[in-house]
């Protein structure tokens, strides 16, 4: 019974973290069509923002604005120098951001060194839930993620910005004709997306390894989640995270991690083949 509760908690946690990690890419790839291979590097920048705050001895909560500042600045520069020339050329964004990913990794390596950094555990210790001792920080993180997504869902449905981005993506010419500043909106969307990735990095940093190459872990699974779920909607993102995260947790529990990893790849291939528009396809 306890074991089932543990697996259940792990399942929920895994899905939530995947959704958090993918969110930034969902904005950049799902809305703008930029195949951002540097997505993981922005998560890494977020984690290093947390490191800066920790080394300065400041309260951890300040890592969040720090990550927005760092990722926003880098995002602005990247958009201005590279991305804005490449909208609607997805394969080229893939290549250019692959190069950017290397640049960002090397810049961080130059500034902080190649070695592993340890972000102190926040809320150490465990809390008993459903008879299972579960790490307190994870539970807190779950609450934050759920609140974040609830807020986003409400905001995106209600706000004009969401509609504008949708309009711009579906028909850029028309959008600019009706007075939407597409260049500005694209830039803002890109910066928003990479900043969200940075925030994910801050939130995850106390749990994971922190080093310049950590971003690769998050990159490919993020793409698969997006395509399985369907691009351009928060619901699709959640569905994708559930399918990929669920497959991994269940298969890894029954068999082993290698089988879990292989089944993620196979499921992704099947979805890409049979349901390329995703489970939660937009009409």
């Amino acid at each position: 019974m306890e074991l089932i509760a543990l697996y259940g908690l792990n399942l929920v946690y895994t899905i939530a973290v995947l959704a958090l990690v993918v969110l930034g890419l969902a904005v950049v790839f799902g809305l703008l069509g930029v195949m951002n291979m540097a997505h993981g590097e922005f998560i890494m920048l977020g984690a290093y923002s947390a490191l800066i705050i920790q080394q300065a001895g400041l309260p951890y909560i300040l890592a969040l604005p720090m990550a927005v500042l760092v990722c926003g600045t880098v995002g602005f520069l990247v958009e201005y120098a590279v991305i804005r020339h490449l909208y609607r050329r997805p394969f080229d964004t893939l290549l250019a951001t692959w190069g950017l990913a290397i640049l960002i990794r090397k810049a961080v390596e130059g500034a902080f060194g190649r070695d592993y950094k340890s972000i102190e555990q926040r809320l150490p210790g465990t809390v008993s839930v459903l008879g299972v001792d579960y790490p307190a920080y994870r539970l807190a993180l779950l609450v934050v993620i759920v609140a974040l997504f609830a807020g986003l869902l409400i905001w995106y449905r209600r706000s004009n910005t969401g509609a504008r981005i949708k309009a711009m993506v579906q028909n850029p010419a028309l959008a600019s004709a009706v007075g939407i500043d597409t260049a500005f909106l694209s830039r803002a969307t890109f910066i928003f997306g990479v900043s969200v990735a940075g925030l994910a990095g801050v939130l995850l940093a106390p749990l994971v390894r922190v080093e310049p190459y950590m971003g690769l872990d998050y990159l490919l699974s993020s793409f698969f989640i997006l395509v399985v779920g369907g691009l351009g909607s928060l619901e699709g993102l959640l569905v994708g995270s559930t399918v990929i995260g669920g497959t991994d947790v269940v298969v890894s529990a029954i068999s082993d991690k290698t089988a879990g990893y292989l089944s993620i790849l196979i499921i992704s291939i099947l979805f890409l083949w049979l349901r390329p528009n995703g489970l939660y396809a937009k009409r």
Partner: peptide, 19 residues
């Protein structure tokens, strides 16, 4: 148990160790 290089989530292994 053997894990692929790409793994960053160890929950199932930890559950198995506990079990």
């Amino acid at each position: 148990e053997y894990l692929p290089f790409t793994v960053d989530n160890f929950d199932s292994s930890l559950a198995k160790i506990k079990e």
